[in-house]
Design a protein around this nucleic acid. Sequence first.
RNA 1: CGGGGUAUAGCGCAGUCUGGUAGCGCAACUGCUUUGGGAGCAGUGGGUCGGCGGUUCGAAUCCGUCUACCCCGACCA
Length: 570
Amino acid sequence: MKTSRFHLVTRKETPADAEIVSHQLMLRAGLINKLGAGLYTWTPLGLKVLRKVEKIVREEMDKTGALEMLMPAVQPAELWQETGRWEQFGGQLLKITDRAGRDYCFGPTHEEVITDFARKEIKSHKQLPVNFYQIQTKFRDEIRPRFGVMRAREFLMKDAYSFHIDEASLKQTYQDMHDAYCRIFERIGLKYRAVDADSGAIGGSGSQEFHVIADSGEDAIAYSDSSDYAANIEKAEALPPATPRPAPTEPLKCVDTPGAKSIDEVAQALDVEKDRVLKTLLVEGEDGPVALVVRGDHDLNEIKADHLPAVKSPLRFLTPDEVKACAGCAPGSVGVAGLNARIIADHSAANMADFVTGANEDGKHLTGVNWERDAHYDETADIRNVVEGDPSPDGSGQLKFARGIEVGHIFQLGDKYSKAMNAVVLDENGKSVPMKMGCYGIGVSRIVGAAIEQNHDDKGIIWPTAIAPFQVMILPMNLHKSERVKATAHQLYEDLQKAGVDVLLDDRKIRPGAMFADAELLGIPWQVIVGDRSLDKGEVELKSRKNLQSQNLPLDSVVSFLLQQTTSTP
RNA sequence: CGGGGUAUAGCGCAGUCUGGUAGCGCAACUGCUUUGGGAGCAGUGGGUCGGCGGUUCGAAUCCGUCUACCCCGACCA
């Protein structure tokens, strides 16, 4: 492609309403153009990137034997009413009405449509297993779209849905999808982690999210520094301490702590570290109040606590009045000694000795408290958030924290949708059984933003070669003045094209400085600089966008060098 | 949905308080000069000042109202 025949519009200035760097660079490089909140036009340049991502996704899906199809974006309300999601999905569902007053939605996802398709077309276990996918525009009416294509309302997604006769088959395809996703992100050239996710309200037995690691990510993830283990911070398991509880050394004492309510205030008033203070939180239980206790430097994990049988779900903290009725004091002075509630201690809290706790009397705390001697817990459990430095739950290494951008998820759905929509097949015994389902999504357009978020510098984008809009850009210095530069640039352009390299020739009549600035903003992996200076020696200059280092190469070896570079590195 | 903010040329902004015929920089177009890191000079085009209504001799400016967009929060298969 030549710039003179391409639509290339770049900007020096950053549009005011773009917050994060990927959004700013996408606008400046002219990959997207905003139409409305969360609505973007993909320009010819942007679409080239999007299509390259799409192609990799499609190739890897096809390799697993998944079958591509295309479902309607507009879906009848009846289908969503069958699964109860017409109401349940809430405001994110864009509802529309046709001229006859019939209700539809613009699909935010396609479980209903595919399940309807499957119940009509799949009747026998012999047709199973099967995995359908599509790459299609989705619409979710986000409460707050932001960050450009990272959280847009209309976006491009690859969604796949698999159908199975039993759990074992589902698990096999789930694993195949996991492996395919790893290959996809590796081919694109992104640093990523597969992260255990909470299966939450949907049920099912397994779910993993794929996160691209970037500081601007909206999700916090914990990962092991020496294994593949990674999980959402809220989901990561906190192991019990490996060392036994120390023996008591201090006597129990009651001290005045006027005005000290929070852990910080108590620790400061008594001049102890926060990990010596016990945090006692009273919540509603199935059978009277329950006290959840964690170490002062730890945070309660409400999801873990909510799952405890003794705790009433959904988790609710007692009001100050209820705390007063239960413990006889305000929330800031509640303690475990003599407390009339079921006490559930976090593993780390249960391992404390000579600790500080509220005295169940306003303005007073107990010091030198020890389990068994002074107080008792009814059970121990994992009810806290992990912190950096905790041992990894898989037994290998320590946990570190990072921020991630969720670009994919895979899910074992089980029979949630097939049961609700009566999608059944006859098994080997001629018995009618609901199919097992899995679903697997990749945010195709989000990957473009995430890739920039992970690969840029102060000059612009640094595309991984696999998804760069062009692999090579030819920058002729003053081509309108030098016939030799012009002829060489065009010859190189033709040779590279013939060799199958995706090349852009900048034949605009602009000064070298502007040309360099644009090339760096656009982030094309290799620049070939053609100028009289190096042509005198029969050479051209090659510059890598990654490190901005340049080298001179004889004219006749440029094509083979670039061919090798663009096919070997991601 | 709660809180805050903004809306003036393609982009970034001034002008609004104190009403008087709309400006700056970048970008675009033309010409001349310049040419290895976003050139200089001269000239040109482009604006329902977000919409509607009101006050006024006169409204970008004051009042009312609606809309759009952005930020923080809650929400998020």
